[in-house]
Amino acid sequence: MSRTFLVFAESRDGKLRQVAFETLSAARASAEAGDQVLALVVGSGASSIAGELAAYGADSIYTIEHSDLNQYNPEGYFAAVKKAIDETKPDAVLFGHTAIGRDLAPLVAASLQAGQISDVTAISRSGSDVVFTRPLYAGKAFEKRSFTSSPWVVTVRPNNIQAPAPDSGRTASVTALTYPAPSLRTIIKEVVKKTTGKIDLSEAKIIVSGGRGVKSADGFKPLEELADVLNGAVGASRGACDAGYCDYSLQIGQTGKVVTPEVYIACGISGAIQHVAGMSQSRIIIAINKDPEAPIFKIADYGIVGDLFEVVPLLTAEFRQVLNV
């Protein structure tokens, strides 16, 4: 019997996020031939960006446009997703494991009396049996989990399940649904965009991260310059956050964010277990530290023993030259 997978395709600032394509890819990886993969896009302008999802694997696309949905509000977004669920009766609902998906998926799971597998990093399928891999202890261990009942709710960690190359030959129907406009007990008063123009840590391909060795808030400037040249994001260790050098939203580790970039450049980070848990799944790790005995060198692919305030600007200059930026 064919099944239906509904993907919540997240957008930001009027554009679909990369994680939307990755979540679609996760649905496709869970689906057998003949199964249907549906996508939902919400917010003003949803219908103008929805079409792009066809090329990435959506069979049918649903949109819900309403000004309530231009900014994340748990109640408004839940009402929208519930509307799409009532309309399409999916066997599984998938979200990105993002600020929105992490918050929204448990509401959907609870309302459906469903199980949820969170923060999935890999999917394997044999027939209709699907096994989801996810980290425990921020990546100090991994478990494989499966569902024992239906429907399923899944959140997919950004940057782990590759989005397919777009196939511009694919087409999908686009259906507009009506927002059921619940009365909201949560009123969003203001959104302070601190990240405009910056690359989100969880989606960044390159992360330049600073620890206690950065010594001050100003000490992050050379790291920011390197990140800019590499089109990457800046992160931090708990030590740097606790010392007040940067915002907690930059923290990487077992408390904080878990990241899996292509390249992780650890500057002045000793490599405490709790930090390593949050970044050890990065593809390439580079350590820059004055202390040759720092534990970070034990897991780094490449290490430079030296003062980050000397090394990082040299690295920035070298990349500028080589990359022509």
Binding site: G115, F142, E143, S149, K298, I299, Y302, G303, I304
Partner: peptide, 26 residues
Amino acid sequence: TAQTSRVELSLPPVRNAGKILKGELQ
């Protein structure tokens, strides 16, 4: 009753120390 169950538990692959570079910083 549980709606999900664990199939397997494992440790991540061990990361080995790589190359510590030598010479002048530049």
